[in-house]
Simulated assay, not measured.
Amino acid sequence: MTHTPTVTVHFSQAILQAAQRLGLRLPEEWAAPTHRDRVDLAQQDRLWEHFCRAADDPLVGLELGLALQVGHLDTAGMILMSCETVGEALESLLDYHPIVGEGGDFLVADDGPRVAVRYRPHYATRRPERVEAVLASLLNLTRWSTGDAFRAQSLTLRHAALGAPERYRERLGVPVVFEAPHNALVFDADQLRVPLVHANPALCRHLRGLADELLARLDHRALSARVGALIREHPGWGKERIAERLGMSGRHLIRRLADEGTSFKLLRDTLLRERAEQALRDGRRVADLAAELGFSDESAFTKAFKRWTGETPARFRGDRAG
């Protein structure tokens, strides 16, 4: 069954509240209160299109992001604010952002002195405005949750400025770089240790249990099947790269696979063994196969194959040839 991406209704309500403050007429499908927990991404697209067209402000997405509150982020927002440090909150963001919306992924890139929280949207409708809303809310809520102790270095955007560039600096309080390689919030690595003023480890653990159940309901496809498909497509990828593609941290990937009674190592070994055995039956060269499957050299592949099957590749091929 194909999974339909959704967004929490609380985030949609933030847009509706902003529209009401601006005196904008709402789309007919949003005229009556909704009792749903989730909204299809396609419907969210229509809401954003109407909102941006009706607003007389090119930076309406930025302003919306600055107005977002923790409650608009559903359970994920409560988890983020109850973490102990900025670093822990970012790990939770990687794990639980689909609760807010499945329209994009986050990645934390650490190059030593600087950290960049990158955002990769999957939608096309009003992409610049929505990206600005996401990154503005990330900056603003991080400041709020640390009692304004968090210090960002810059915010980078892949698109050109939608309005006067100086207005971005005025509203965000940090330099903004346009037409950059990534949409990202950039800050010094020491900011990861900044404590959160509402830290509550017991509450955070409880909320993570609830959030794990919600994530499991969001996507009815077994995670192991999705991981397996990525391993088949990219046999040389490791756990972290697979987790990044799935929009979660490596730690969370391990935990969710364990809930399904398996592990990344077991899945990868099983799939690589099947691929290697078939390739050897087809007469493939061991050196070529080792490189294709992501091993450093032929010797490393031979050791792994012997661990899987109890035989060397040469012995395996010779037995089948006979």
Rank of each mutant, 00 (worst) to 15 (best):
R151W: 10
L64F: 08
S145F: 10
A199R: 12
P181S: 10
L138K: 04
P313I: 11
A133S: 14
D212R: 01
D297R: 09
R151V: 15
T4C: 09
N200M: 07
R307Q: 15
R25E: 14
Q20T: 14
V134G: 00
P128D: 04
L107Q: 05
D259I: 11
F51P: 03
R245F: 03
R169L: 12
D219T: 00
V131K: 00
P113F: 06
L257T: 07
C204L: 04
G261E: 02
L172C: 01
L214E: 09
L64P: 06
K306R: 13
G228T: 13
N183P: 08
R315F: 11
Q69M: 11
G247Q: 00
G173I: 06
A229I: 08
R317A: 14
V60A: 04
D111T: 15
L293A: 09
I99S: 00
V194K: 13
Q43N: 10
I231V: 15
R53P: 06
V108E: 10
V194H: 04
F51C: 02
G247M: 00
Y96V: 00
R158F: 03
R126G: 09
V286S: 12
V194L: 12
H234D: 01
S224A: 09
T270F: 06
T270I: 02
A67C: 05
S249W: 03
R273F: 10
L230D: 05
L41I: 12
F301P: 02
L214N: 02
V177F: 15
E213I: 07
L215C: 05
V60I: 13
D259V: 15
T8I: 09
V100K: 00
L257K: 02
E29N: 12
L172H: 05
H198C: 08
S12F: 08
L196H: 05
T146F: 04
T125M: 15
A199I: 07
R255E: 15
E91V: 08
R256T: 01
G163R: 01
P313G: 07
I99N: 00
V108G: 02
P175F: 04
R256M: 03
H182C: 10
T6M: 09
L207V: 03
H234G: 03
F316P: 08
R46G: 12
D259P: 05
Y119Q: 01
R284S: 09
R241W: 09
A19L: 09
A54Y: 04
E129G: 02
R46D: 15
A189N: 14
E129W: 05
F316A: 12
G250T: 15
G209Q: 13
R36M: 09
M78R: 12
L280W: 02
P58W: 03
Q20R: 15
L155H: 05
H122V: 08
G147I: 06
E132K: 03
L267Y: 02
P201A: 07
L80K: 00
R25C: 08
V86D: 04
R114P: 08
R130Q: 11
K265S: 13
A321C: 08
D45V: 07
R245W: 06
M248V: 00
G209I: 11
R273G: 15
E311N: 08
A222S: 13
L272T: 11
T2W: 10
Q20G: 11
R127H: 10
R193W: 05
I79A: 03
